[in-house]
Design a protein around this nucleic acid. Structure first.
Lengths: 300, 300
DNA sequence: ATTCATCATCAGAAATAATTATCAGAAAGA
DNA sequence: TCTTTCTGATAATTATTTCTGATGATGAAT
């Protein structure tokens, strides 16, 4: 029942090629008896001889000849394993599944993807855009490698690293442009348009206004920041959006953007991954790249 | 530099399929720590992790996923080696290179080949027909597995086993049919046609006549028994041929065949092979088949 | 016949792998 | 929360395998 070993196959290969126990042993950096023993063991495991030992030469039997080809193939495949592992170790290679929350994705992704593929062209990047709870679940199940969300997440099983801080700005109808910027209390009296349930940005906005939950009457839910801004442009109310979305979202709508005075509302965007992920230290590297891309994006 | 082992690949395969150290260890009939250690060793040899150990589950990393396929292939190929060896051991399979001397080949081969392929249909039989010295050389060099020649050969490195005894008969012109059969002395005075140098049958015929070597004048060399018989039919002289050749060779020529009186000239035909040949015990079996085929042929 | 080359064999040493017992961390249930 | 349970890691020990260096045996070459 004793199965043979890879070592024996390597010795066999050497002996098959060199046809000489002593030289094959040298080639394998072992002593000649070790070579003899392992070959014999291999033959015993097989129940047939692979070599015909003449006094002057060692010849492959027909079975040996057959083996030589097959074993060569096997050893090639085995050595390939090492290559595969090395390639995976040296460069960041293959699939990288990134999850991103919807209030960040449209504004950050172009820059991130551009920078990542520039630095690691062999990377196969897959993006998943959904709300934080979904991202956390998929991360835990191993369907995502990392996610970009608002911190903190406070999951012991996850590592988190901040990427950048982003402030929220007020978006109101163009007609309000000249009016003073409302403070938090004043804001509470206005018609505040928010994203639908599930988006963390909704909670962050509410939290800024010191509102526990939305008063159903006065609020209208939108499914994306774009929608909210369009609604503002139509004079339905006001909304908050992250600084980063300003450029893209307010271009085509008749709205005005204003910064709050005093304490700026803001949130921290960060990257998270399973603490146990073998990509962990790779992901730290990727976080750095993303940080750079985000900084460049915000500067523009 | 330490390379990994087949054993580790088998353990890896089990773990990759079962996703559980304990169960994989059971499947491999080892303890769980042994499994853990070997997997870790494999990972260390590769320099990358193959599994991501979660508290509740063991998941393949991307590299591990890649490995799973490759390792499966490798193990399949390795197990195939065993199959190949077993097939070679159980049945006589593959190539069998038989050398035969020219004074036996045409008469014996049809029966031998027929019988051998009947008993071992998977046998790939190759025939080499040449004179004994060539056969011995090719046998020694491993270019032949066995040879059928006249015994004795008396080479210590070769095993020989007799197949059958065959007597020589006199072939003379049809016109001589009524004359008494000459004895050895009388034969010496006749024009004896012989095979050219190198054929053992030439030496055996000369030896019967108690002649050391042929007297150049009186002899004429032929390159085959057929030629000799044709020459006899043309009235050029007389010749000896092995009993076994009578049926084939004297059919179409105007010759008469006569047995000698008293001590019959004869030779032993046998099979030889390298004592070191791993086919040795197989060849004994083949010799038995050949013996049977020859007996059947001679009976007909 | 003697020497040389070459592979086999042996006994002890070194390296490898296995076992049992135990630990530590995370998930699940009370 | 606080256990309990599940799971893999670690440690110490034992068993097995593999290697080496010395020696033996055998056939080929001088």
């Amino acid at each position: 029942m004793m199965n043979f070993t890879l070592r024996q196959l390597r010795y066999f290969d050497a002996l098959a090629r060199l046809g000489h126990f002593g030289r094959a042993a040298d080639a394998c950096a072992i002593s000649q008896p070790a070579m003899s023993m392992q070959i014999r063991e291999l033959e015993e495991a097989l129940g047939s001889e692979l070599f015909e030992r003449g006094a002057r030469q060692v010849r492959l039997t027909q079975l040996g000849e057959d083996f030589a080809g097959r074993v060569g193939e096997i050893l090639r495949a085995v050595d390939e394993l090492e290559d595969v592992a090395r390639a995976a170790r040296d460069r960041l290679t293959g699939r990288l599944r990134i999850g991103v929350i919807p209030t960040v994705a449209p504004y950050l992704l172009p820059a991130i993807i551009g920078e990542l593929t520039r630095v690691h062209p062999e990377l196969d990047i897959r993006i998943r855009e959904t709300v934080t709870p979904n991202l956390l679940e998929e991360l835990a199940e191993g369907r995502l490698d990392t996610a970009i969300v608002a911190l903190p997440v406070s999951e012991a099983s996850l590592t988190e690293t901040p990427l950048f801080e982003e402030t929220f700005v007020l978006v109101r109808p163009k007609s309000d442009e000249a009016k003073p910027v409302p403070n938090r209390e004043a804001l509470r009296e206005m018609r505040l348009l928010l994203l639908e349930e599930g988006h963390c940005f909704r909670d962050q906005a509410l939290s800024f206004c010191a509102m526990r939950s939305a008063r159903p009457r006065e609020l209208l839910d939108g499914s994306s920041l774009s929608t909210l801004v369009q609604m503002v442009g139509a004079g339905i109310g006001v909304t908050l959006i992250p600084e980063m979305a300003v450029g893209v979202e307010t271009r085509s709508a008749a709205v005005s953007v204003a910064r709050f005075e005093g304490p700026q509302p803001s949130r921290t965007i960060g990257m998270i991954w399973r603490r146990t992920s073998p990509l962990a230290y790779r992901l730290a590297e990727i976080a750095e790249i993303v940080r750079r891309a985000a900084a460049a994006e915000r500067a523009a």
